[in-house]
Amino acid sequence: MSGERIRVVIYLRAPEGEAEQLEKTYREISWVRGEGAGTAIAGLVRSELLRDVDRPGEYLLHSEWETLEDYRTWQFGPDHKDNPSALRPYQDRSRGRHYAVYGITSED
């Protein structure tokens, strides 16, 4: 898995009446827009916020990274560790771990 693209999923949940605020917060996060420290984050290909069409208060923050190493470097680096995400209040911890990291096993 070390040299392949990965996907990271963060599970989010908006309390009643806060869906618009969650979406606005996502759009304001600098790493989402590739503006971390004035430059794009190394290895981040893209990110997107997905809303569950059957359960509108539930979301996934999906990001694609060039490699697991790129993601881990950012995840454990000072730009992330020292700056808690504005989305932290929305993390859905009801399922245990609020995120998952996936390697691509097959792609057409």
Rank of each mutant, 00 (worst) to 15 (best):
G34C: 07
V53S: 12
N83G: 14
E107L: 01
D82S: 12
L49R: 01
M1W: 05
E23Y: 01
L68H: 10
G43T: 02
R7I: 15
Y102I: 11
E64L: 04
A86D: 12
G17K: 01
V9D: 05
R27L: 10
G34P: 07
R46M: 04
W74I: 10
Y11N: 12
S2E: 15
E4H: 15
Y59W: 10
H80P: 05
D108A: 12
E20C: 08
R13S: 15
Y99P: 07
K24D: 13
I104P: 07
A42T: 15
S47W: 05
L61C: 06
R72N: 08
L61E: 08
E48W: 00
E69D: 14
T73A: 05
G77M: 00
A14D: 03
L68G: 06
E48F: 00
L60A: 06
I10W: 03
H62W: 15
I41V: 15
R97V: 13
E64R: 02
A86P: 08
G103W: 02
R55H: 12
I6G: 02
R5S: 14
R27M: 11
R27V: 08
H80M: 05
V9Q: 05
E23C: 00
Y99E: 13
A40K: 05
E58K: 01
F76S: 09
Y90L: 06
D70P: 00
P84C: 04
M1R: 04
V32I: 14
G103F: 01
D92K: 03
Q21K: 15
Q91M: 13
